[in-house]
Simulated assay, not measured.
Amino acid sequence: MDVEGALKEKELGNQAYKKKDFQTAIKHYTKAIELDNTELTFHNNLAAVYFEMKEYDKTIKECETAIEVGRENRADFKLIAKAYNRLATAHKKLGDLQAAKVGYEKALTEHRTPEYRQNLSEVESEIKKAAELAYINPELADQEKQKGNESFKKGQWADAVKFYSEAIKRNPKDSRIYSNRAACYTKLTAFDLALKDCDKSIELDPVFVKAYLRKGNVLKAMGQIQKAMDVYSKAMELDPDSAEAKTGYKDCAVRQYSTGGGDPEKTRERAMNDPEVQQIMGDPAMRMILEQMQSDPQAVSEHLKNPEIMKKIMKLKDSGLISMQYR
């Protein structure tokens, strides 16, 4: 064994590696191993060269040797972890995500670093994504959707949710399945989940009127009347002949009026329960604008030129707190 000679060869290998003269680096690292076969660093360095050359099978083999040599000679656990990490990354490059996951896990058992933790997290995410993609099957999604429809007709809402959820896993791009599940959640009075599904359905298909109608129904059931009216209004834009949208909007308008009962104090009380209205009324700049509008009704025309102020003023108008008369 020639430790001093091995270290000289390693240094020459490092110099060649930095110059990307990989063949020369291989020659020197291999010579270092011949002179001292108890040092895993030489194997780690050789593996690094193979990795840069995209020879991932050789990288893996050299990393395995490095780990074996390291174990036999009680090497620093940090060096063994480094070998496991490079081995895992080579597996990842070859597309073997499960082997990469195992490698990163072993690296972490030897030495926990943010880098190794991040590498494991990324490969786990890729494995999950690959599994989800492999699970997609529109034909099976339609079958599960049909089972959901049958359960819904029977009033078996929980069973329908289960079938629709499976259909979504099989075809997560079908906006109608989310809309159908939203209808189930509405029946179960799980309004937050229903809204989430309605929004996802609309995101996937912005012109799918049924999703807007269901969202409007949910908001109405939650007592968020103005928001429900806005959604019904959007549904009427998409389908001017929609009787359900017209009826929903009319019901909300009637409810909004009747809740106030024509009593300004009740109207104000109802409006101030809206967090958005509370925020607007708590803004000193908006209070100043409202005072100006009271003394000079024509001033509203100027304020409406500012989109943000216009939005706030219209919100107050819709809530019944203010009325506007301007030309």
Rank of each mutant, 00 (worst) to 15 (best):
D21S: 15
K58F: 07
P275R: 06
R270D: 01
K187W: 10
A47E: 07
E244H: 07
R268P: 00
K128S: 07
P297I: 10
K234S: 08
C63T: 07
I313L: 13
A99M: 11
G320C: 05
R112Q: 13
G70N: 11
D263E: 11
Y178R: 03
G5W: 03
L7Y: 13
G216E: 03
A131G: 03
D197C: 10
R287P: 00
K200S: 14
Q325H: 09
F22M: 04
E166S: 00
L87Q: 10
I313K: 01
S165N: 02
D142L: 15
A81V: 08
M1E: 03
V207D: 11
A88V: 06
C63K: 05
Y56M: 04
R268Q: 05
L140C: 04
Q156N: 12
V123F: 00
A160F: 06
D241E: 11
L290E: 08
A131H: 10
K128P: 00
K147G: 08
R71W: 04
D230G: 01
D241H: 13
M288C: 04
L133A: 15
L35Y: 00
E122V: 15
Y84C: 05
M288S: 14
P284L: 06
K154C: 03
Y326I: 08
A81W: 06
W157K: 04
E115K: 12
M236K: 04
S121E: 14
D274W: 14
D263H: 13
N180R: 01
A183Y: 02
H303V: 09
M281H: 02
K154I: 06
D251V: 15
L133F: 10
K311N: 06
D241L: 14
M229W: 02
A253Q: 13
M1S: 05
K196T: 14
D36W: 02
A99C: 04
C63P: 02
E9L: 08
K200M: 14
Q143Y: 10
T247C: 08
Q146T: 11
M310G: 10
T59G: 06
T267A: 07
L193G: 08
V207A: 12
Y232K: 09
Q143L: 11
E144F: 11
E55F: 03
I67K: 02
M288H: 10
A83C: 03
K215M: 13
G248W: 09
A160G: 06
V209T: 15
D174W: 06
D174G: 02
Y232C: 09
A141N: 01
P264S: 12
E11M: 11
A6F: 03
G13A: 00
S125A: 13
A190E: 14
W157C: 09
I225F: 08
I136W: 02
T113V: 10
G223I: 10
L46N: 12
K147T: 05
Y84L: 04
L120C: 04
E308D: 13
S323W: 01
K58N: 09
Y56P: 00
I26R: 04
P275S: 06
K58L: 13
S295H: 11
K147W: 09
K169M: 12
E34I: 01
D21G: 07
L140M: 13
I322E: 02
P275A: 07
S233I: 05
E62W: 06
